[in-house]
Amino acid sequence: MSTHRVPIAPQRVDAPLTQSATFLVLSVTNKPDAIENVRSTLAGVDSLAKNVSIRDLNAQFACTVGIGSDIWDCLTGLPRPSELHPFREIKGAKHTAVSTTGDLLFHIRSERRDICFEFERQLMDQLGDSVSVIDETVGFRYFDVRDLLGFVDGTANPVGLAVPGSVLVAEEDESASGGSYIVVQKYSHDLPGWKDLSTEQQERIIGRTKIDNIELDDAQSGQRSHKTLNTIEDEDGNEHEILRDNMPFGSPGSGEFGTYFIGYTRRLWVIEKMLERMFVGDPPGLHDRILDFSKPLTGTTFFAPSASLLATLGSD
């Protein structure tokens, strides 16, 4: 496997928000040649994406590949990104951010569900018994980018020129340059309990108005809103943003309702700090009240290397 330097081309972590997405988390098996087959498949992901996306160039197809901490070393043979480690469980007084396994993440999105389906079908055909599925979640865009709790999601995302500085690792971390850390969590919602709250109570928990998405003033003390707890500043007062591409998922027939959280960041500690503030509380003991109605079922960390690095994985 070649480790020569190549020009850095990031993966499309900042691809546009789409109508449909599939979040596919896989484990690499111990089958003979599994690692080699996975390497070859990842190296050819760009070609596979072109083969599928050409069917409708207006469908805004994109796929981002994330590699987990446990498989990074043997899969890539490259130095580890400085912050890459397994998702750390965060246990608060009432709620816990659970840690779950995952070697590979494929964040597949498109304006068309059938395009996502076709890419995943061809991808899984290539991977074969080299992998097993840990979780597969199909998400959809809900009205004007709302979650199933009824609020606009992703308002705080960086835009334009602010995106690379928020999500792409800089050159000072040579092993990770041009890549992005990813955290995923699958949340299940208690919609009946949430609907028992008044709109005003819901708005205080979220920190925004429900209809027109206007920010409410931050609480100066005591219970903080979800918006406030997810605002992270460093010691110098600089705010650090992340890029979210969350998607609702669910089935009214089975009573399943949820949000698949996916956050891309240049600095993993930013998302970890957000989760600590949510689950432990700020001040400690006053957890994010959205957790009384949203339970995390998974929690996994990945690193999305540059597309240039992925393309070299199949080389000798």
Rank of each mutant, 00 (worst) to 15 (best):
I232Q: 00
L297Q: 13
N246Y: 08
G237F: 08
I290Y: 02
D236K: 14
K273G: 00
E235T: 11
G299Q: 02
T259R: 00
P252R: 09
G281L: 05
L268V: 02
L243E: 04
D245R: 15
H287A: 13
E239L: 13
P296V: 02
T259G: 00
I262L: 07
N246V: 05
D288P: 06
I290L: 14
M274K: 08
R267P: 04
S294K: 02
T231G: 11
D236W: 11
R289H: 12
E276S: 15
L291F: 09
D236Y: 12
V270N: 00
S294C: 10
L297S: 08
E239M: 13
G253E: 10
P283A: 08
R277E: 11
R267K: 12
D245Y: 03
E239W: 07
Y260K: 02
G263H: 00
R266I: 05
T231D: 15
D288N: 12
P284H: 11
E235W: 10
P283E: 06
T301P: 00
H240N: 08
L291I: 08
L291E: 02
I262V: 14
E256Y: 07
T300Y: 01
F279C: 10
P248H: 06
G258Y: 01
I262D: 01
G281Y: 07
T300V: 11
F249E: 01
F249P: 00
N238L: 11
